[in-house]
């Protein structure tokens, strides 16, 4: 599904990613872990070209999604972002109603059929395990929801446009434990239909939700392995030290 070849990435003269090659399969959850500033979020944002919004950056290497180089000149960035959804660290619903938040992605992608939109909004709110909680508040401002509900609304918003990949950048780091477990449950559900890549600070979370885990440090991919193996018996000593909490 996603494949990178020898990725180097620079912020100005600072090299944030060093020669990273990895492959992520369809319908799996891949977690990126590592200490702050290790480049895992930067790497994640390559897949929907969010780094394009930052000035003075440089990319080397290839980043393929479904076999196509997404940094090729022929790629339509808006279409790419429609196919590769993203959920951010802090819930960022628009200052609009719950309904409009989910409908937004459909509308900007040219869908005008009101009935279709209404159906899809309900479907995706259900898929994001939020519908029962908000069905009486669809026309209320999204800011009236709790933080956890807002984050699930943002997930619903991303699901509405039927992406094939969902990127999650520490989606639960601003949430309480109960909301976090709801999000994790949701990730389990979503795996059946979507390919998910999640950046997390929380190693237990990586262990709980992911099939494969990549451990990053100082811009390098130290180890990439099955999550079980990674947490029980990692190949690399640095990984072992990090996971057992000897540093980080």
């Amino acid at each position: 599904m996603i494949e990178t070849k020898n990725i180097n990435f620079y912020y100005g003269s600072f090299q944030a990613l060093k020669n990273i090659s990895m492959k992520m399969d369809a319908n799996t959850v891949t977690a990126f872990i590592g200490p702050s500033g290790c480049g895992k979020s930067t790497f994640l944002r390559l897949f929907n070209r969010m780094n394009d919004l930052i000035d003075d950056t440089k990319l080397e290497g290839e980043c393929l999604i479904k076999g196509k180089d997404i940094y090729d000149k022929s790629i339509n960035i808006d279409a790419l972002r429609k196919d590769v959804g993203m959920v951010f660290q802090k819930p960022n619903p628009f200052p609009k109603s719950v309904f409009e938040n989910v409908a937004y992605g459909l509308k900007v992608n040219g869908i005008t059929d009101k009935k279709f939109i209404a159906n899809r909004v309900e479907e995706t709110l259900k898929a994001a395990a939020l519908f029962d909680e908000v069905k009486d508040k669809l026309n209320k401002s999204a800011f009236e929801l709790s933080g956890g509900q807002q984050q699930r609304l943002c997930i619903a918003r991303a699901l509405a446009i039927e992406p094939s990949i969902i990127l999650m950048d520490e989606p639960a780091s601003a949430l309480d434990p109960i909301s976090t477990s709801k999000i994790e449950e949701l990730i389990h559900q979503l795996k059946k239909k979507y390919t998910i890549v999640i950046v997390t600070h929380n190693m237990q979370q990586a262990a709980r939700v992911s099939d494969k885990t990549g451990f990053f440090m100082l811009g390098e991919l130290i180890e990439y392995n099955d999550t079980k193996k990674m947490f029980l018996n990692p190949d690399n000593e640095t990984t072992q030290n990090y996971i057992t909490g000897r540093f980080g």
């Binding site: 929907n48 969010m50 919004l53 808006d78 279409a79 790419l80 972002r81 429609k82 959804g85 993203m86 951010f88 802090k90 960022n92 619903p93 628009f94 200052p95 937004y104 992605g105 900007v108 992608n109 943002c154 918003r157 991303a158 446009i161």
Partner: peptide, 17 residues
């Protein structure tokens, strides 16, 4: 807030939209 803009871009909206 910048997060509104990035949220919108991430859904495939153009800059003008």
């Amino acid at each position: 807030p910048e997060s509104y803009r990035t949220g919108s871009y991430a859904l495939g909206a153009s800059k003008l939209q």
